[in-house]
Simulated assay, not measured.
Amino acid sequence: MTIGELLKEYRITQGKNQKEFTDSGMIVSQSYYSKVEKNIHRITADSLIELLHYNNIPLDEFFGRINQNDKIQHQQVKDFNNMLVDAYYDSDVNKIKQIKELVIQSNLPDKDKKEELFWVDAWLEVLKGPKDTPNTELREKVKDKIFNLPNFNKSNVALFCNFMQFYDLDSNKIIGRRIVEQYINSKDIKIRVVLVKSF
């Protein structure tokens, strides 16, 4: 289903004409919008989001209906990540190796599969004992990925905490300071719980 077809479906379901749906042409002109519904013109991301908000259409619901495949792949990646975290906290190297096979056999796009395999190897690396030879190249890549995150949501804070042993003390202080500065005035209980558990 195209964006235009889905917009038309929502508009008709709400019993609105194109003028009402576009806030009397304030969001996008009615003539342009008509061509969007017919898949003649494309709508900008800003206009689409404004249109969805104006008509009380949840963004995740709308985009989830555009491409079910994306939603399935996103859920699959989320499931793999949850399984990896569980296996890590159980210190179950064999389970992580089984997850690696599942990722290899999955139908994720190559880019996503490569990213997931990277994190599987990272979790295996963090579980290495003091007598095991460290993969310094992999550790540096993990450190760079986490260090260069633009912001730290709940998942990224947890990710940093699980891999903080790869960093030196000064780097841990820098990242820790960035996280605290980002959330110092936050009233979000979930992030506070993650921070308390992590630090």
Rank of each mutant, 00 (worst) to 15 (best):
D79W: 02
Y88T: 06
Q68V: 11
G4F: 05
N67I: 08
R65L: 12
F152Y: 15
C161V: 03
K19F: 11
F63V: 06
T22E: 00
L127N: 04
L51Q: 08
N162P: 14
E61G: 10
M1A: 13
I175H: 03
I66V: 09
I72Q: 06
I189S: 05
S155E: 08
L149E: 01
I57Y: 13
L169P: 00
V77P: 09
F163N: 03
R11V: 09
K187G: 09
K19V: 00
N69I: 12
Q105N: 15
V85P: 07
F160N: 01
N148P: 09
Y32I: 00
Q76F: 14
K100E: 08
S91P: 00
P58A: 02
I72P: 03
V28R: 06
D70R: 13
N67W: 02
I96E: 02
N172K: 12
W119H: 11
K145W: 02
L48M: 07
K111L: 14
E101N: 14
L102Q: 14
E37T: 03
K38T: 07
K71N: 02
N135D: 14
I96F: 12
R65W: 04
I40Y: 07
A45M: 10
N162Q: 14
D92E: 03
N69L: 14
Y89H: 14
N148T: 00
S24P: 00
D86R: 15
N151V: 03
N56T: 02
G15M: 11
F166K: 08
A45K: 04
R11F: 10
P58C: 05
K128E: 00
V120I: 15
K145Y: 09
P109H: 15
S24Y: 10
Q14C: 07
V194K: 12
D110C: 10
K16L: 15
M164C: 08
A45T: 15
